[in-house]
């Protein structure tokens, strides 16, 4: 397993580096001279030169890339053009919303999807199974931002149980903050849970057909004992893989959902950055989001190397 892990770690680092290079090329090199966009087309030459010097744009691109990377690793994300504050401050505030929201949505997804998936598999080809599968077919097709709007209309406007949008800061009460993330998390989790419930169901059904499950049944375990002792653990491998792949979509969904519920998270920050031509903010957030996806996929790979006993056998 250690060979697998070492190999996987190397590709992880390479992927992160590749992502940072692409982000740098696209957002730093392609747009040209930012001093033009910041000062407008008719400032005098000295002003441009002064600004370029101040922003460190006179240095060669390679050096600027390493500066940027070195800074990122130390938590120095550069200075925002638009607000003249460290990008880190802006990002940190936005992360306090985006990350809990993504985790909240993921938790709901896991609980609902595993529950429904195992339930459907245990009622295979019976009405319960059909109902769950029909709902998941519908759930996969629902655009999450539309679902978010419908949730607002029903639970906030009609019933008045929640606020229609906005975020209550953590300092003003953990419960209130969680409450303001509740509808967004539901909107995000519905589609994800619909997909994951299908994966869980077919993984459990698939595992039930394995020889070792037949052996377990033959030695006298009941169906539910086999389910808990043997099937679930093995069925989790494809489920975790799909969860990892879904994480990128979840994060992308978070950006969209933040816009629906007017939440001041990374999504809002990056769109403001685009509107203000604030490249350092855009660059850092894009890399941060891509980085999160890469890290999660790495963790997923490592996790199933640990869960799947068959992977251990390979390198003895």
């Amino acid at each position: 397993m250690s060979v697998f892990l070492a190999k996987r770690f190397l590709t992880f680092v390479a992927t992160l580096l590749g992502a940072s290079i692409v982000v740098f090329l696209v957002l730093e090199i392609l747009p040209g001279d930012p001093s033009m966009t910041l000062l407008g087309a008719d400032a005098d030459e000295e002003a441009y030169a002064a600004l370029r010097l101040k922003l460190g744009l006179d240095e060669p691109a390679v050096l600027r890339y390493f500066d940027w990377m070195w800074g990122m690793m130390q938590g120095d994300f550069g200075i925002s053009y638009a607000y003249s504050v460290p990008v880190m401050e802006l990002v940190w505030g936005a992360m306090a919303l985006t990350v809990p929201l993504a985790i909240f949505a993921m938790l709901i997804t896991i609980v609902v999807a595993l529950g429904l998936g195992v339930f459907a598999a245990s009622r295979h080809n019976k009405p319960g199974d059909y109902v769950v599968m029909a709902f998941s077919q519908l759930g996969i097709a629902v655009p999450n931002f539309w679902f978010g709007i419908l949730l607002i209309l029903f639970f906030a406007v009609n019933l008045g149980w929640f606020k229609a949008g906005g975020f209550v800061q953590w300092e003003d009460g953990v419960w209130l903050a969680v409450k303001s993330l509740f509808l967004p998390a539901i909107a995000l989790a519905t589609v994800q849970a619909a997909i994951l419930a299908r994966t869980t169901r077919s993984a459990v059904l698939e595992t039930f057909r394995e020889d070792y499950v037949r052996t377990a049944r033959a030695k006298g375990l009941t169906r539910s004992q086999t389910l808990w002792r043997h099937v679930l653990r093995n069925a989790l491998i494809p489920v975790i893989t799909v969860m990892g792949l879904q994480f990128a979509n979840l994060l992308a969904g978070t950006i969209v959902i933040e816009s629906v519920f007017s939440l001041p998270g990374l999504g809002k920050l990056v769109f403001q950055g685009i509107a203000n031509r604030d490249m350092p903010v855009v660059k850092d957030i894009v890399l941060l989001l891509a980085g999160m996806v890469i890290v999660v996929n790495f963790v997923v790979d490592v996790t199933y190397a640990v869960i799947d006993p068959r992977l251990k056998v390979h390198d003895v």
């Binding site: 696209v26 792949l245 992308a252 990056v270 769109f271 996929n297």
Partner: peptide, 13 residues
């Protein structure tokens, strides 16, 4: 590697 850039992220860039 391309998987790390969902459509929304590429669109933002």
């Amino acid at each position: 590697f391309t998987f790390a850039f969902p459509a929304v992220l590429s669109a933002i860039m």
